[in-house]
């Protein structure tokens, strides 16, 4: 199966990282030690130019978002977008006191900022992924973020899972705004999805409220993440390759008549009128993310794969779009 459905990095971690993982499993019968987590926090603080005390580690960013929703939406209204990172949204729907979702609509997928500001008359938690998954669009800018954050009763969590692809962050505002938190992951850009490593760069308000977060991540996770941070150039080179492939994938799809919404990340949002496209592709050994279950019919998210995987995907797409039996 060619996996173009989960926004994974198609490139494996570096040799050094793989070696660190192998070395770490010699002591796998022992619990992780606090010092391993502290070392990783130190490395993440330096990578993000943030204070070490602001880094909170988590087994993946999904877990982090779920916990933050549990802690902070019980006595606050929650605002999220639809679409967004769907597991977090589903968790929110089940657990928040009250939830307001903002539907992002084609062709621009913009956030209605006025309606968000109008909502801020009571304690509220806002969670926005920036850039947004699956549209790939940047939904927030500094001016809007600061406008939100000047209300002390409002908490803002920005999910920057794709930060390394866009290099645009609000992490530097965390020192000035206690009500801001930045959610990150090393799963995608650093090729560590199977190890699940997420972290929060937390404003003071979040730090005060979060006290019993799991402090012991699995040893291989901690070792791999630390090793990966020693050589960010390896990650950057992979990202460069992915972004080149994304462009190629985009123009290939456009050539065969598929509508592509240009994003800034390691995936593409496409619209295709061939019903059940993802099932047809799955029958041909390729997985893409069908968004119709949670969002609008006909929209799909395709992660950028290895060049040969992208070639195969484009070739199958061409065959499918030329087959009248598959069309309406």
């Amino acid at each position: 199966m060619i996996r173009l459905h989960m926004n994974e990095n198609p490139y494996p971690p570096s040799e050094n990282v793989l070696r660190a993982i192998k070395d770490s499993i010699n002591n796998i019968n022992r619990y992780s030690e606090l010092k391993y987590a502290d070392k990783l926090k130190e490395a993440l603080a330096s990578y993000n130019n943030a204070s070490e005390k602001r880094i909170i580690l988590s087994p993946g960013s999904e877990f982090l978002l779920r916990e933050l929703i549990n802690i902070f939406s019980g006595n606050r209204k929650l605002i999220m977008t639809n679409p967004t990172f769907f597991p977090a949204l589903k968790h929110a729907i089940r657990n928040a006191r009250k939830i307001i979702k903002h539907q992002l609509s084609p062709p621009n997928f913009e956030l209605n900022r006025e309606m968000i500001l109008e909502e801020l008359y009571e304690p509220t938690l806002i969670i926005v992924d920036n850039p947004n998954n699956p549209t790939g669009k940047m939904l927030l800018d500094r001016k809007f973020v600061m406008e939100i954050l000047k209300n002390k009763d409002i908490l803002l969590l920005v999910d920057e899972a794709y930060y390394e692809f866009v290099k645009y962050t609000f992490a530097d505002l965390v020192d000035s705004y206690p009500n801001l938190g930045i959610v990150r992951t090393m799963d995608k850009s650093f090729s560590l999805a199977g190890l699940r490593i997420g972290y929060l760069i937390a404003g003071d308000f979040f730090l005060k409220e979060i006290y019993d977060f799991p402090r012991f991540l699995p040893i291989p996770t901690l070792f791999a993440a630390r090793e990966a941070l020693k050589n960010p150039e390896y990650m950057e080179e992979n990202i460069r390759k992915i972004l080149i492939e994304r462009k190629r994938l985009e123009s290939g799809l456009k050539k065969i008549g598929v509508t592509v919404f240009s994003g800034e990340v390691n995936f593409l949002l496409i619209k295709c009128d061939i019903p059940e496209l993802s099932t047809i592709l799955m029958d041909r050994g390729i997985m893409i993310k069908d968004l119709s279950t949670d969002w609008i019919e006909g929209f799909y998210r395709v992660s950028v794969g290895l060049p040969e995987e992208n070639d195969k995907f484009l070739a199958e797409m061409e065959k499918i779009t030329n087959n009248p039996a598959l069309k309406w």
């Binding site: 597991p87 099932t279 993310k289």
Partner: peptide
């Protein structure tokens, strides 16, 4: 309901009430 046939994965919709 054909949606239920779609791919498995961490974002699958089996949590939909």
């Amino acid at each position: 309901k054909i949606e239920s046939l779609l791919q498995q994965g961490k974002e699958s919709s089996n949590l939909t009430v």
